[in-house]
Design a protein around this nucleic acid. Structure first.
Lengths: 119, 119
DNA sequence: CGGGATCCTCGTGGATACTG
DNA sequence: CAGTATCCACGAGGATCCCG
């Protein structure tokens, strides 16, 4: 009965429009500065970037290193604990890829992941 | 570079306030009628239940079987393809459980999964 | 440079009523 | 019973300005 009941917890980590991309950048680029992240994520505002980073930091997924200097410098990186969720991300990624292929089989090429809208 | 770039696709399947619980019920209970689902999910409206079910159906995760009779009867179940995502759900569930334990270590007991609010 | 504080928009999801 | 159709509330996320 209790199986699957906590996988929503995992979801809470990833929900948020920018968290997946942020994680992607940090996982592939390693340590990044605030401004680097902002430039790497076209369209994101400072507010959102800050907010999403703080939430990930709270969950011990990323580390925030502040250098006390002028002008300020803050670097973000994946924590050791955060590294341990790489397999999960990989599994989800693999499933996502396979699912896109499955959707292609069902509905043909050039299909988005969303159902077609109808008025 | 392309790694993790499609795990957002996996997320799209689960986002939506009720999809996780719906999947949970269908996975554990097998076939269920519309009204059964509604009763099993306290607080859900027919509109939302219908909408989330349709989206899952589009993705070939669940099957919708309509019995042409009066009064109508519609049964929902996990498709064969849908069954194949059980391992993924299990993996996410396991990670979620472990993560809750990790948060407990960090912040102590009786903590929610969300950062404390401050005014 | 790396934010915080405000205000505002817009889409998700809820409430309610109607229907084949 | 299993929906659909409308209307509406609210909160995530965006725009803008200010600050150490």
């Amino acid at each position: 009965m209790a199986t699957y009941c906590k996988f929503e917890t995992a979801l809470e980590i990833f929900v948020g429009k920018w968290k997946p991309v942020i994680l992607l950048r940090l996982f592939s680029n390693g340590t990044m500065r605030f401004s680097e992240l902002q430039r790497a994520l076209p369209g994101i505002t400072k507010k959102m970037l800050t907010q999403q980073l703080r939430e990930l930091e709270y969950h011990d997924i990323i580390h925030r290193e502040v250098y006390r200097q002028v002008p300020p410098k803050v670097e973000y990186s994946i924590t050791a604990y955060g590294q341990r969720m790489a397999p999960l991300l990989q599994t989800m990624n693999d499933w996502g890829m396979a699912h896109l292929a499955h959707l292609n089989e069902l509905y043909g090429e050039a299909q988005s992941t969303e159902p077609v809208e109808r008025n």
